[in-house]
């Protein structure tokens, strides 16, 4: 994880694939093709992908798709999956209604 994420590297052009319309993030309904294209748009980290597409930011908070997104980004950007930092862990760990979140005791 100490390796520099070289953004100037050439990852080649976006080539449409047969599975591009497959849903990856079920909550936000983001497809494989959208994630692949986002990498070509310059989103090389999981954090950037999340903010750009909202995948992993829906109700389940990436519980199901985090690993899948990671492997797609790694495959597309040519990075080893182990070198991609997972998304930041933040409270609340589960979806909480605002009225509960605000009711601290």
């Amino acid at each position: 994880m100490n390796e520099v994420n070289d953004r100037s590297r050439d990852i080649g052009p976006f080539i449409p694939g047969p599975d591009d319309d497959m849903i990856i993030c079920r909550c936000e309904e983001i497809t494989r093709g959208e994630i692949r294209r986002a990498v070509h748009d310059g989103m090389f980290t999981i954090t950037e992908i999340r903010r750009y597409l909202r995948c992993g930011m829906g109700l389940c908070q990436g519980q199901t798709c985090a690993k899948l997104v990671k492997s797609i980004v790694a495959g597309e950007s040519g990075a080893a999956p182990g070198t991609l930092e997972p998304a930041t862990s933040r409270a609340p760990m589960r979806p909480v209604e605002m009225q509960i979140l605000a009711d601290e005791m």
Binding site: I23, R26, C27, E29, G58, L59, C60, Q63, T64, P95
Partner: peptide
Amino acid sequence: TTKKHRPRGIFCAIGRCTD
């Protein structure tokens, strides 16, 4: 679903996936 109007049902059954 909201965007693609896909049907969804039980998936994880333990409150994680929200499907």
